[in-house]
Amino acid sequence: MEGTQHPVATVRLVFLARLRDALGRQDETYPLDRPISVGALLEALRARGGPWERELAAGRAYKVAVNHEVVAAGAVVRPGDEVAVFPPVTGG
């Protein structure tokens, strides 16, 4: 289909490890019908208050991956994307 209409109007949010425990969920379908920045998405999540505001506050150590690539706050999230939020990694 032509134009800017996206076939899906959601993104999948994934929360991993300690952040999954702290936020009380491992994933969710989040409504999104147009591209926004990662920073704007995080702002919307922080607005939920409680652990969201606390855990995703600026200065807290966490990373965001869009479609499996770690990105900065200026990166763009598009409908259909998978966005993961997770603490610093501790493998090996």
């Binding site: 490890a17 300690r18 425990d21 150590a61 991956a65 997770f86 610093p88 990694v89 501790t90 493998g91």
Partner: peptide, 20 residues
């Protein structure tokens, strides 16, 4: 520092996520 793995320890004082 780059591969997404996380460790959680089960200790006598309960579970704890390992810090980076």
């Amino acid at each position: 520092t780059r591969a997404p793995f996380w460790k959680k320890e089960r200790t006598p004082d309960g579970d704890r996520w390992v810090d980076a």
